[in-house]
Amino acid sequence: MILFDILFELFITFFKVGVFTFGGGYAMIPLITEEVIKKGWTENASELIDFIAISESTPGPFAVNISTFIGFNQAGVLGAIFASLGVIMPSFLIILFIASVFKKFADNKFVVGFLKGVKPVIVGVIFSVAVKFILKSVFDISIYDLSKISLEWASILIFVIVFAMTRVKKKIHPIYVVLVSGILGLLIYGLIL
């Protein structure tokens, strides 16, 4: 019964994530962060960032990867399946509906209006997640204890190098960003410090 409850909750949570994600994988991160931390499905924000890193560097849609990851951690293979089914189901149902009855969907004025409001807000929301992740990963603080900020040169150095790299080579694949920052972490924390 307990397993059933967990599976059901995984399915419902990721179904919700699937319904409210507009604009691809990254748009999913704010809602996943909120839900997963609220439910205590990761030990801390750092572990969630690790999951995101792995989901970005493995093949397939990011959404399915991250749901499988969290589902597997909560309830093994069954958890992985229920979480992925949850995140897939909304798109599946909506597209079936559009493909069979509502072909002019993308030109509908309500759809156009809805997206006009949602798209810029999502960009702002993703910016806020970026700020929180940077505070956590570079300074190891949250937005509420900014006064405790201390300058750790090692993580700042990694940030500057990797950020410069992605700005020079804008089309760089996420997997290289993960690789380079991993190697830098290993070198700087492992060998120098």
């Binding site: 890193a53 997640v129 970026a130 990963s137 993580s155 990694i158 950020f163 960003v177 993960v178 991993g182």
Partner: peptide
């Protein structure tokens, strides 16, 4: 490695 990777992921999101 993951201490570095977390910085990288923050940059991906940014």
């Amino acid at each position: 490695a993951f201490k570095g990777i977390r910085v990288g992921v923050s940059i991906l999101v940014l």
